[in-house]
Amino acid sequence: MTISAPGTPDFSHMSPEDPVNGLARRLTLLERDYKALLRDHEQLRLRVDELEEGADAWASPRPDGAGQDNNIHHLIAREFVVLVEQRVQNLARAAARSQPSQDPPEALHRRIGAICRVLFGTAEPSPSALLSAVHRSRLDPLASDAARLCERAQEMRRKLESSVMPASWDFEFTPGAPLDETWQEPWPSCTAELPGRFVVAPAYLVAEQVYAKQRVHTG
């Protein structure tokens, strides 16, 4: 014996060939789908409201200016990641002594790390120091690229120095130690389960919070 769900019309007594029976079934199915869409729409609306409230709270400046600072640091972190993955890596590849396709991954990663230390270490970055880090002379054709990279890094440093919240690029590292996933990650193509060997790109920390993880060559 089949028992209909509450609120669902019972069509068992009707003939399957009855056009009224078919139309009633069709209307019931449409009503069920319509109610499901309404529920999904309401859930989506509530989720959007939650996200908008969260975004407003995140963007609202606090009296000490930290709210606005937080926005700036998120922008710096994104700019920093893109800079390392694109322009720094491109310069490191161009500085290869052999053909880029024959360049060992470790050698490339060490050059990226050397460039990052010049750009985001303690000393003020300079094109000559950057070229020296990749074993090129200051008259090398890559000098113009090195100068543009230094200008970008100096702009990011100035934004950081004007911040209310303390921020820094962190190169601290213990060779041979396993990665701490809370603030470190392997450089792409490296394995997370292996111990770290050297820093490729530093972490970006703001008020002891990780805005960009340190990326490490493992092996």
Rank of each mutant, 00 (worst) to 15 (best):
A146L: 04
D10N: 15
W187R: 01
L46Y: 12
H135V: 09
V81K: 03
E193P: 03
D10G: 09
P188D: 08
T122M: 12
A66R: 10
Y211Q: 05
L179V: 03
P188H: 10
A36W: 11
I76S: 00
R158A: 12
E106T: 09
R93T: 12
P9R: 08
H217W: 10
R138L: 14
R158P: 03
L149V: 04
P125R: 02
S4A: 15
V199A: 02
T182F: 05
P104N: 10
P19F: 03
T191D: 14
D145T: 13
D64F: 10
S12I: 06
D140H: 09
S12V: 07
L46E: 15
D10W: 10
L75V: 11
A123K: 15
N71F: 12
A146M: 06
N70W: 02
G219A: 09
L38W: 08
V216D: 00
D69W: 01
E161G: 04
M156V: 03
Q68P: 03
R39E: 09
P104W: 05
A201H: 01
L205V: 12
F198G: 01
A201F: 02
I112E: 01
H13D: 14
V82Q: 13
L30H: 03
V20A: 12
S163E: 07
A5P: 08
A5S: 13
I3H: 10
D40A: 10
D18C: 09
V210S: 03
P100Q: 15
E151G: 04
L83R: 02
D33W: 06
A167S: 11
L51W: 09
L29Q: 13
T122H: 12
E79P: 02
R32Y: 09
P63E: 13
A212M: 03
P100H: 13
E42W: 12
I115Q: 00
M165Y: 05
V20P: 00
D49M: 15
A203S: 07
E17C: 07
V48A: 08
E161H: 05
C190P: 00
R197Q: 08
H13M: 14
T174L: 11
P202M: 06
Q184H: 05
A24T: 03
L75S: 12
F120R: 00
A5R: 14
P16C: 06
A212F: 00
Y211W: 10
I3D: 10
L91V: 11
G67D: 05
A167E: 02
D170G: 02
E208Y: 09
V210I: 10
C116H: 02
